[in-house]
């Protein structure tokens, strides 16, 4: 820990240390980008992606609304699938976490299907629902379902027993206990599940759109994943593919940050 090397109370020292860290951290990406730019300029291949060209491509793609449109389309699917998964998984997880009998009987199904990656189910989803939006939503819901169930079960199971006993000594009824003790006590763990689910949901949508693009011959379903594939398959515009990749990463980061912020607002009692 940096606290060990800095005297307590020396705010200036801590600030300087942070400044040094930022400088050190920026050095490597900047150096790599410069190297890329220089070596890339020397290359004879005109398709060679370059940082400068990527920036230019990003500006055009944002300006003509193409990139934001694709992101919005993908996000819409993620949210739809996410909501479906949450509505199914959280009540189920609470029931499983609170009742041993429910858990024992339902857990085999969860554990059997959990190891099957969402992408593996995509061909079935395409078969059942076509190459449009509903298949994509189904894949997101499938992907998000399992982390949500598992974390909700863990949260509901690990309610401190002393809190349940306290509720019992105050004469609370079963349903009231679930509502006022089990749910709030499980909420932090459900929040972890929501964040993981959002992450895998976003990954799944990109994969699903890519695969649909690759296997259904383009199609009209859109989204950022499909856009990447179109740039690859029809024009080999590597700069634009990289812009998409960066956008995928940025959206993943922002989604997690927003969710984390929202969860912190929802749970003002948690110390962090």
């Amino acid at each position: 820990m940096s606290a060990a090397t800095t005297l307590p109370g020396s705010a200036q020292g801590a600030g300087a240390l942070r400044g040094r860290r930022a400088l050190l951290g920026a050095a490597l990406p900047v150096a790599l980008l410069l190297l890329w730019q220089v070596l890339g300029t020397l290359s004879a291949d005109p398709r060679m992606p370059l940082p400068s060209k990527i920036v230019a491509a990003a500006v055009t793609m944002i300006a003509d609304g193409e990139l934001p449109m694709a992101i919005v389309q993908s996000l819409g699917r993620v949210f739809a699938g996410f909501v479906v998964a949450a509505l199914l998984a959280i009540p189920l997880g609470l029931a499983m976490g609170y009742s041993r009998a429910v858990e024992r009987n339902v857990d085999p199904l969860v554990e059997t299907f959990r190891p099957i990656a969402a992408i593996a189910v995509l061909p079935l989803a395409i078969l059942w629902l076509g190459t449009g939006t509903s298949a994509a939503i189904a894949i997101v819901a499938y992907a998000a379902f399992f982390p949500l169930v598992v974390n909700t079960v863990a949260g509901a199971r690990n309610v401190p027993p002393t809190l349940l006993r306290a509720a019992a000594t105050m004469g609370l009824r079963k349903f009231t206990t679930v509502r006022t003790v089990v749910v709030p006590a499980a909420l932090p763990q459900i929040g972890v599940g929501l964040r993981i689910a959002m992450g895998v949901g976003w990954t799944a949508i990109v994969a699903a759109e890519l695969a649909v693009g690759a296997k259904a011959g383009g199609g009209g379903s859109g989204g950022i994943g499909q856009m990447m594939f179109v740039f690859y398959a029809y024009s080999i515009e590597l700069n634009r593919i990289i812009v998409c990749m960066l956008a995928v990463g940025l959206v993943a980061l922002l989604l997690d940050r927003i969710l984390r912020w929202a969860l912190a607002r929802l749970m003002p009692w948690s110390a962090r």
Binding site: G25, M228, F231, M245, G249, A252
Partner: peptide, 22 residues
């Protein structure tokens, strides 16, 4: 860690699957 970590954190959110076209 200070040198490498930001680069790792920049790349990490880009899922492996997003690398497929490239």
């Amino acid at each position: 860690e200070a040198i490498v970590d930001p680069t790792v954190e920049l790349l990490r959110p880009i899922s492996g699957i997003a690398w497929i076209p490239l």
